[in-house]
Amino acid sequence: MAAPSTWTPTEMMTIVAARALKSSDVCFVGIGAPSAACNLARLTHAPGITLIYESGTIATKPNLLPLSIGDGELCETALTTVSVPEMFRYWLQGGRITVGFLGGAQIDRFANLNTTVVGPYNRPKVRLPGGGGAPEIATSCQEVFITMAQSKRSFVAKLDFITSLGHGEGKCSRERLGIATKGPTRLITDLSVLEPDAETREMTVVSIHPGVTRERIADATGWPVKFAAKVADTPPPTVEELTVLRDLHARTRAAIEGKA
């Protein structure tokens, strides 16, 4: 099969995020882009991955992407479904999750996330849905992957509100709060992949997607973004990755429109 020549930046982002997951991972899945990436991983290179949604479904294998974190599809295809208090107490707080997958409206250079408000908390310009499970996912999972489209609007110098902790103010912020988990180890965008600098913990570009320039990444970032000493070229999507992802979206769309 010939290599596919076109794909959208969002498809690239989802595919790169999926590649970050292993078959042995136990993954706490946020809705939206994380859900697509996690299910793509399961349907391609990581068939053994355990996907957990905060609604209580453990080891779920949905045939299509849920619109919400509690669609019936998730429960029907799960190994078991537990109550929400059990999910947060035993499974998340209990330290059973290897990877938490988050997204957000705003992110800063230390991968702290805001999904709460734009503007001041008490008089917001835009009231966003809020944190949901994120505050505890960010600190209880062994590590956190974040996937977000990169733009100046969302990659900001200073967050309006810290909904969930990333690397705080850098360096040993997490350790000072008594947190033993790694926090955000990978930030996957539609342009690049960023990882925390070993010392400062500032998110630094380590891989650039095909056709994207350093200038474009800098233009889409609200702080002077740093590039690692050695920056990789992200391998383009494979035919299999693109086909499986597009099928997944097509099945989902058909189901919403009542054709499935």
Partner: peptide, 10 residues
């Protein structure tokens, strides 16, 4: 009682 809200502005 639970292990939560660490580093969270809420």
């Amino acid at each position: 009682v639970f292990r939560g809200y660490r580093g969270a502005e809420l």
